[in-house]
């Protein structure tokens, strides 16, 4: 009984992981573009992307989720709850990722850009070969934190009916009248996922670290 119970929730794990694996790269893509625009675009790029970041981070994720969901599964664009929820989470995450990358780009320093241009690189080359490779290394620790957050926030899509871990736990709790078991199992699985993700990224940070480099 317990194993059927457990396996029902575990099946939701695949969905949780899928949601996260859509939201994170989507957020990274937008976040990186906006971070580059903020730091290297003109005055208006900085203002607009700055405003985006401020707004998206100033509202509770669940509220944004509902707004974006109703937009993404409405008349103009019609997506399934799974896709609408995943992309919405990606959009929310993009604001936080933008801040992480913006900080990393800034930490690399204007001097690196100057030196790159001094040997004849144009801005694109400088970004591609000099700035971004250094920024990525600096961004790994805070990004690892964002991965944890998106993993945990993926649970918010339960409100859209997506059959991920929390939704299943909720259903199980209702049918079996065993809330502690149901939500406890969910908690354990989330914990395992977050733990594994952080460990993996810590390992990556170790591997890509430059010898004795303290920016």
């Amino acid at each position: 009984m317990v194993s059927k119970f457990f396996s029902y929730i575990v099946q939701g794990t695949a969905v949780t992981v899928e949601v996260t694996l859509i939201a994170l790269p989507f957020g990274l893509m937008i976040g990186l573009i906006f971070a580059l625009l903020y730091n290297y675009g003109g005055k208006w790029s900085t203002r607009l992307t700055g405003l985006y970041s401020l707004l998206m981070r100033g509202v509770p994720p669940i509220v944004l989720l509902f707004i974006l969901y109703f937009f993404l599964s409405g008349q103009f664009i019609n997506l399934t709850p799974f896709w609408a929820g995943s992309l919405a989470l990606g959009i929310i995450s993009s604001a936080y990722q933008m801040e992480i990358l913006r900080g990393a780009l800034q930490a690399v320093g204007g001097g690196q850009m100057t030196a790159a241009r001094a040997i004849g690189m144009n801005r694109m080359q400088a970004l591609r070969y000099i700035i971004i490779p250094q920024a990525i290394r600096l961004a790994i620790p805070p990004w690892s934190n964002e991965v944890s957050i998106v993993l945990k926030d993926s649970s918010l899509v339960y409100a859209l009916g997506v059959p991920e871990i929390l939704r299943r736990a909720q259903q199980l709790s209702a049918t079996t009248q065993q809330p502690f078991l149901a939500f406890g199992a969910a908690a354990l699985i989330y914990f395992a996922l977050v733990f594994l993700a952080n460990r993996g990224l810590d390992y990556l940070a170790q591997k890509t670290r430059l010898p004795a480099y303290n920016p």
Binding site: G111, Q112, A118, I119, G120, N122, P133, Q134, Y213
Partner: peptide, 20 residues
């Protein structure tokens, strides 16, 4: 300008080597 800078070498006070 980028092409011109290939022909003029510059050395900076704080070296500005590419750290990575």
């Amino acid at each position: 300008q980028d092409e011109v800078r290939q022909q003029i070498g510059m050395v900076f006070q704080n070296f500005l080597l590419f750290n990575h």
